[in-house]
Amino acid sequence: SDPSEDRAPESARVGNIPSSTSALKVPQLKVAESAQGPAAAHTTDTAGYNAMEESVSREKPELTASTERVNKRMSMVVSGLTPEEFMLVYKFARKHHITLTNLITEETTHVVMKTDAEFVCERTLKYFLGIAGGKWVVSYFWVTQSIKERKMLNEHDFEVRGDVVNGRNHQGPKRARESQDRKIFRGLEICCYGPFTNMPTDQLEWMVQLCGASVVKELSSFTLGTGVHPIVVVQPDAWTEDNGFHAIGQMCEAPVVTREWVLDSVALYQCQELDTYLIPQIPHSHY
Protein backbone atom coordinates (compact mmCIF):
# COMPACT_ATOMS: atom_id res chain seq x y z
CA SER A 1 0.00 0.00 0.00
CA ASP A 2 3.01 2.29 -0.19
CA PRO A 3 2.53 5.22 -2.56
CA SER A 4 5.01 3.83 -5.07
CA GLU A 5 4.74 6.76 -7.46
CA ASP A 6 5.93 9.02 -4.63
CA ARG A 7 8.89 6.86 -3.63
CA ALA A 8 11.77 8.86 -5.11
CA PRO A 9 12.22 12.34 -6.54
CA GLU A 10 12.34 11.43 -10.22
CA SER A 11 10.36 13.36 -12.80
CA ALA A 12 8.34 12.39 -15.84
CA ARG A 13 7.98 15.25 -18.22
CA VAL A 14 4.97 15.73 -20.43
CA GLY A 15 5.20 18.38 -23.07
CA ASN A 16 8.87 18.35 -24.02
CA ILE A 17 11.20 15.74 -25.43
CA PRO A 18 14.15 14.82 -23.20
CA SER A 19 17.66 14.77 -24.58
CA SER A 20 17.67 10.99 -24.43
CA THR A 21 14.85 8.47 -24.47
CA SER A 22 16.20 6.83 -21.34
CA ALA A 23 15.45 10.04 -19.44
CA LEU A 24 11.76 9.75 -20.23
CA LYS A 25 9.71 8.25 -17.43
CA VAL A 26 6.06 8.27 -18.39
CA PRO A 27 3.55 8.14 -15.54
CA GLN A 28 2.41 4.52 -15.37
CA LEU A 29 0.15 4.91 -12.38
CA LYS A 30 -2.28 2.35 -11.09
CA VAL A 31 -5.93 2.65 -10.17
CA ALA A 32 -7.11 1.09 -6.94
CA GLU A 33 -10.02 -1.20 -7.79
CA SER A 34 -13.06 -0.65 -5.65
CA ALA A 35 -16.70 -1.63 -5.79
CA GLN A 36 -17.66 1.62 -4.14
CA GLY A 37 -15.96 3.74 -6.78
CA PRO A 38 -12.98 6.11 -6.67
CA ALA A 39 -13.83 7.57 -3.27
CA ALA A 40 -13.12 4.21 -1.64
CA ALA A 41 -9.87 3.70 -3.50
CA HIS A 42 -7.84 5.07 -0.62
CA THR A 43 -6.66 3.20 2.43
CA THR A 44 -6.19 5.39 5.46
CA ASP A 45 -4.13 4.30 8.44
CA THR A 46 -4.67 5.48 12.00
CA ALA A 47 -2.59 8.55 11.28
CA GLY A 48 -5.23 9.80 8.87
CA TYR A 49 -2.78 9.55 6.00
CA ASN A 50 -3.89 8.26 2.62
CA ALA A 51 -1.40 5.54 1.82
CA MET A 52 -2.76 4.39 -1.50
CA GLU A 53 -2.05 7.20 -3.89
CA GLU A 54 -4.04 7.70 -6.98
CA SER A 55 -3.97 7.74 -10.66
CA VAL A 56 -4.21 5.90 -13.85
CA SER A 57 -2.31 3.61 -16.16
CA ARG A 58 -2.24 5.14 -19.63
CA GLU A 59 -0.45 4.69 -22.90
CA LYS A 60 2.61 6.81 -23.49
CA PRO A 61 1.47 10.44 -23.81
CA GLU A 62 1.87 12.11 -27.15
CA LEU A 63 4.91 14.37 -27.07
CA THR A 64 4.85 17.86 -28.49
CA ALA A 65 7.52 19.00 -30.89
CA SER A 66 10.77 19.98 -29.23
CA THR A 67 10.63 23.32 -31.03
CA GLU A 68 7.41 24.22 -29.22
CA ARG A 69 7.82 26.64 -26.33
CA VAL A 70 7.74 24.84 -23.01
CA ASN A 71 6.92 26.62 -19.77
CA LYS A 72 10.02 25.70 -17.77
CA ARG A 73 8.73 27.50 -14.69
CA MET A 74 5.61 25.46 -13.91
CA SER A 75 5.69 21.78 -12.97
CA MET A 76 2.69 19.92 -11.51
CA VAL A 77 1.82 16.72 -9.70
CA VAL A 78 -1.67 15.49 -8.80
CA SER A 79 -3.01 13.69 -5.74
CA GLY A 80 -6.28 11.91 -5.06
CA LEU A 81 -7.73 12.22 -8.56
CA THR A 82 -9.75 9.68 -10.53
CA PRO A 83 -8.47 8.52 -13.95
CA GLU A 84 -10.88 10.88 -15.70
CA GLU A 85 -9.79 13.83 -13.57
CA PHE A 86 -6.14 13.01 -14.18
CA MET A 87 -6.69 13.10 -17.95
CA LEU A 88 -8.33 16.52 -17.65
CA VAL A 89 -5.26 17.80 -15.78
CA TYR A 90 -3.05 16.22 -18.44
CA LYS A 91 -4.88 18.10 -21.20
CA PHE A 92 -4.77 21.32 -19.18
CA ALA A 93 -1.02 20.92 -18.63
CA ARG A 94 -0.38 20.26 -22.31
CA LYS A 95 -2.46 23.26 -23.38
CA HIS A 96 -0.51 25.60 -21.08
CA HIS A 97 2.91 23.98 -21.68
CA ILE A 98 3.20 22.89 -18.04
CA THR A 99 5.37 19.94 -17.04
CA LEU A 100 3.26 17.19 -15.46
CA THR A 101 5.15 14.64 -13.37
CA ASN A 102 4.11 11.60 -11.38
CA LEU A 103 6.65 12.23 -8.61
CA ILE A 104 7.12 15.40 -6.63
CA THR A 105 10.61 16.92 -6.98
CA GLU A 106 12.42 20.12 -6.05
CA GLU A 107 11.33 21.51 -9.43
CA THR A 108 7.63 20.92 -8.72
CA THR A 109 5.73 24.19 -8.39
CA HIS A 110 2.12 22.99 -8.02
CA VAL A 111 0.41 20.09 -6.22
CA VAL A 112 -3.16 19.63 -7.48
CA MET A 113 -5.31 18.00 -4.78
CA LYS A 114 -8.76 16.43 -4.91
CA THR A 115 -10.83 18.59 -2.54
CA ASP A 116 -14.39 19.28 -1.56
CA ALA A 117 -16.11 22.54 -2.50
CA GLU A 118 -14.43 24.31 0.43
CA PHE A 119 -10.93 23.27 -0.70
CA VAL A 120 -10.48 20.67 2.06
CA CYS A 121 -8.50 17.54 1.15
CA GLU A 122 -7.28 14.18 2.43
CA ARG A 123 -3.69 14.05 3.73
CA THR A 124 -1.38 12.34 1.23
CA LEU A 125 2.39 12.19 0.85
CA LYS A 126 2.28 14.74 -1.98
CA TYR A 127 0.20 17.03 0.24
CA PHE A 128 2.82 16.91 3.01
CA LEU A 129 5.79 17.30 0.64
CA GLY A 130 4.05 20.13 -1.22
CA ILE A 131 3.52 22.06 2.00
CA ALA A 132 7.01 21.26 3.30
CA GLY A 133 8.50 22.54 0.04
CA GLY A 134 6.47 25.75 0.05
CA LYS A 135 4.78 24.86 -3.23
CA TRP A 136 1.34 25.85 -4.47
CA VAL A 137 -1.05 23.25 -3.02
CA VAL A 138 -4.26 23.90 -4.92
CA SER A 139 -7.66 22.34 -5.46
CA TYR A 140 -8.53 20.41 -8.61
CA PHE A 141 -11.19 23.11 -9.07
CA TRP A 142 -8.36 25.41 -10.18
CA VAL A 143 -7.99 23.22 -13.26
CA THR A 144 -11.71 22.80 -13.97
CA GLN A 145 -12.52 26.49 -13.55
CA SER A 146 -9.53 27.52 -15.66
CA ILE A 147 -10.75 25.20 -18.41
CA LYS A 148 -14.28 26.58 -18.08
CA GLU A 149 -13.10 30.19 -18.32
CA ARG A 150 -10.53 29.37 -21.01
CA LYS A 151 -7.65 31.00 -19.15
CA MET A 152 -5.32 30.10 -16.31
CA LEU A 153 -6.88 31.50 -13.15
CA ASN A 154 -5.01 32.85 -10.13
CA GLU A 155 -3.91 30.08 -7.77
CA HIS A 156 -4.62 32.25 -4.71
CA ASP A 157 -8.35 31.69 -5.19
CA PHE A 158 -7.97 27.89 -5.17
CA GLU A 159 -5.32 27.23 -2.51
CA VAL A 160 -6.14 24.28 -0.23
CA ARG A 161 -7.45 25.66 3.06
CA GLY A 162 -7.34 22.59 5.27
CA ASP A 163 -7.62 18.83 5.55
CA VAL A 164 -9.85 16.20 7.13
CA VAL A 165 -7.46 15.58 10.04
CA ASN A 166 -5.99 18.91 11.12
CA GLY A 167 -8.96 21.19 10.47
CA ARG A 168 -10.90 22.60 7.54
CA ASN A 169 -9.40 26.10 7.52
CA HIS A 170 -5.90 26.00 9.04
CA GLN A 171 -4.26 27.64 5.97
CA GLY A 172 -1.14 25.46 6.31
CA PRO A 173 -0.25 25.55 2.58
CA LYS A 174 -0.50 29.36 2.47
CA ARG A 175 1.50 29.73 5.68
CA ALA A 176 4.23 27.45 4.34
CA ARG A 177 4.39 29.20 0.98
CA GLU A 178 4.80 32.58 2.65
CA SER A 179 7.23 31.40 5.36
CA GLN A 180 10.05 29.69 3.48
CA ASP A 181 12.53 32.03 5.16
CA ARG A 182 11.24 30.85 8.57
CA LYS A 183 11.33 27.07 8.34
CA ILE A 184 9.52 25.32 11.18
CA PHE A 185 12.17 22.67 12.00
CA ARG A 186 15.32 24.79 11.80
CA GLY A 187 17.70 24.12 14.67
CA LEU A 188 16.39 20.55 15.06
CA GLU A 189 18.24 17.28 14.47
CA ILE A 190 15.74 14.55 13.64
CA CYS A 191 16.30 10.80 13.51
CA CYS A 192 13.50 8.82 11.83
CA TYR A 193 14.04 5.56 13.70
CA GLY A 194 12.73 2.06 13.11
CA PRO A 195 10.05 0.89 10.70
CA PHE A 196 7.42 3.12 9.08
CA THR A 197 4.37 2.04 7.09
CA ASN A 198 2.71 3.70 4.10
CA MET A 199 5.49 6.25 3.76
CA PRO A 200 9.09 5.44 2.80
CA THR A 201 11.60 6.57 5.42
CA ASP A 202 13.59 8.56 2.86
CA GLN A 203 10.49 10.58 1.99
CA LEU A 204 9.82 11.31 5.67
CA GLU A 205 13.45 12.41 6.01
CA TRP A 206 13.16 14.61 2.92
CA MET A 207 10.02 16.16 4.41
CA VAL A 208 11.74 17.23 7.64
CA GLN A 209 14.77 18.48 5.69
CA LEU A 210 12.51 20.66 3.55
CA CYS A 211 11.25 22.11 6.84
CA GLY A 212 14.78 23.04 7.91
CA ALA A 213 15.82 20.08 10.08
CA SER A 214 19.10 18.19 9.88
CA VAL A 215 18.59 14.44 9.42
CA VAL A 216 20.54 12.00 11.58
CA LYS A 217 20.65 8.36 10.45
CA GLU A 218 21.72 6.75 13.73
CA LEU A 219 20.86 7.48 17.35
CA SER A 220 24.58 7.66 18.11
CA SER A 221 25.09 10.43 15.54
CA PHE A 222 23.28 13.25 17.32
CA THR A 223 25.34 16.41 17.82
CA LEU A 224 25.75 16.89 21.54
CA GLY A 225 26.02 20.59 22.12
CA THR A 226 24.22 23.83 22.63
CA GLY A 227 21.88 25.26 20.03
CA VAL A 228 20.94 21.89 18.54
CA HIS A 229 17.78 20.07 19.61
CA PRO A 230 17.69 16.29 18.92
CA ILE A 231 14.36 14.53 18.33
CA VAL A 232 13.66 10.86 17.57
CA VAL A 233 10.59 10.13 15.43
CA VAL A 234 9.00 6.66 15.49
CA GLN A 235 5.77 5.00 14.40
CA PRO A 236 4.83 2.69 17.30
CA ASP A 237 2.17 0.66 15.46
CA ALA A 238 4.76 -0.34 12.83
CA TRP A 239 6.98 -2.11 15.38
CA THR A 240 6.62 -5.89 15.50
CA GLU A 241 8.55 -6.33 18.74
CA ASP A 242 6.42 -5.21 21.66
CA ASN A 243 7.42 -1.89 23.16
CA GLY A 244 10.93 -1.84 21.66
CA PHE A 245 10.44 1.87 21.04
CA HIS A 246 10.16 2.44 24.80
CA ALA A 247 13.85 1.54 25.18
CA ILE A 248 15.19 4.18 22.77
CA GLY A 249 15.77 6.48 25.74
CA GLN A 250 18.46 4.09 26.97
CA MET A 251 20.46 4.73 23.79
CA CYS A 252 20.21 8.52 23.58
CA GLU A 253 18.99 11.52 25.54
CA ALA A 254 16.64 12.84 22.83
CA PRO A 255 12.87 13.08 23.29
CA VAL A 256 11.00 10.36 21.37
CA VAL A 257 7.79 11.35 19.58
CA THR A 258 5.31 9.71 17.21
CA ARG A 259 5.34 10.40 13.46
CA GLU A 260 2.13 12.36 14.00
CA TRP A 261 4.22 15.20 15.44
CA VAL A 262 5.91 15.59 12.05
CA LEU A 263 2.73 15.21 10.01
CA ASP A 264 0.67 17.61 12.12
CA SER A 265 3.48 20.18 12.23
CA VAL A 266 3.91 20.04 8.46
CA ALA A 267 0.20 20.14 7.62
CA LEU A 268 -0.33 23.20 9.83
CA TYR A 269 3.16 24.53 9.05
CA GLN A 270 3.57 25.27 12.75
CA CYS A 271 6.01 23.31 14.89
CA GLN A 272 3.80 21.53 17.42
CA GLU A 273 4.65 21.20 21.10
CA LEU A 274 6.19 17.80 21.78
CA ASP A 275 4.17 17.05 24.91
CA THR A 276 1.13 15.36 23.38
CA TYR A 277 3.29 13.26 21.03
CA LEU A 278 5.91 12.03 23.54
CA ILE A 279 6.42 8.29 23.97
CA PRO A 280 7.31 7.30 27.56
CA GLN A 281 10.82 5.88 27.82
CA ILE A 282 12.30 3.27 30.15
CA PRO A 283 14.78 5.25 32.27
CA HIS A 284 18.52 4.61 32.25
CA SER A 285 19.72 1.89 34.62
CA HIS A 286 21.84 3.26 37.45
CA TYR A 287 24.27 0.76 38.94
Rank of each mutant, 00 (worst) to 15 (best):
A117M: 15
S179N: 00
S20T: 11
L278T: 11
E5Y: 10
I248K: 15
V256M: 10
S285K: 14
V31T: 05
I98R: 02
H284L: 06
M199L: 08
A12D: 03
R182L: 14
V266F: 00
N166R: 09
I98Y: 07
N198W: 05
K114L: 06
P283N: 09
E241M: 15
E155P: 10
F119V: 02
G227M: 06
V26S: 03
E253S: 13
A35Y: 04
S22W: 06
S22R: 02
A132P: 00
V26K: 11
W136S: 14
T99P: 11
S22L: 09
K114A: 10
V164L: 09
V256Q: 10
I17A: 08
G80P: 02
P83L: 05
P280F: 13
T115H: 00
F196G: 07
P3W: 13
A238V: 11
K60T: 07
E107F: 07
Q28V: 07
L88S: 02
D237V: 15
V165L: 02
H229P: 13
S1P: 10
W206S: 09
P283R: 09
T223R: 15
E54T: 05
Q36R: 08
T101L: 07
L24S: 10
H246I: 09
A8P: 13
R69D: 13
Q235P: 06
S66T: 06
Y49V: 10
T43K: 02
K95Y: 14
D6R: 12
G80D: 02
T240Q: 10
F222V: 13
R13L: 10
M207H: 03
L188M: 04
T46P: 06
V31L: 09
Y140P: 00
A8N: 10
S146H: 00
I190M: 12
A176P: 00
D116R: 01
V143T: 03
N166T: 08
W142L: 02
Q250R: 10
T64G: 03
T109L: 01
L188S: 05
V262M: 10
G80Y: 14
A32V: 12
R69P: 08
L153Y: 05
H284S: 12
E33Y: 10
A35R: 09
A117L: 08
T258K: 14
K25G: 07
F158P: 00
G48L: 04
R175S: 11
D157M: 03
Y90R: 04
T46R: 11
H286Q: 15
K114P: 01
K151A: 11
R94K: 06
T44Q: 15
L129C: 15
G249L: 14
F119C: 03
E10H: 08
P283M: 10
Y269M: 09
K151Y: 11
E122Q: 06
G134S: 10
G172D: 00
A176H: 04
A40P: 08
H42F: 06
K183E: 00
P18L: 04
S214T: 14
E218Q: 14
G167L: 02
C191P: 00
R7C: 06
H284V: 07
S19C: 07
A247T: 09
N166M: 04
H286G: 12
P230W: 06
E178T: 06
R175D: 02
R69C: 13
M207E: 02
V56Q: 07
R186S: 14
M52E: 09
F128T: 01
A35Q: 06
S79T: 03
D6I: 04
V14I: 06
M207R: 01
L29S: 15
N169A: 01
L219S: 14
G15W: 04
P3R: 15
I98P: 01
P27T: 12
R259G: 02
E149S: 14
S34T: 11
I17Y: 10
D157P: 09
T240F: 15
Y277R: 02
R7V: 03
S139R: 00
Q281G: 06
G130H: 00
R13T: 15
N50A: 10
M52Y: 14
A40F: 15
A93N: 06
S11N: 03
K217I: 10
N102T: 13
K174N: 04
F86I: 05
L129R: 03
L263Q: 04
V165D: 02
F119T: 02
R7G: 13
A65L: 12
F158G: 00
G172C: 01
Q203S: 05
H42E: 04
L88M: 08
S55G: 13
L188Y: 03
E241I: 15
N243Q: 13
V78G: 11
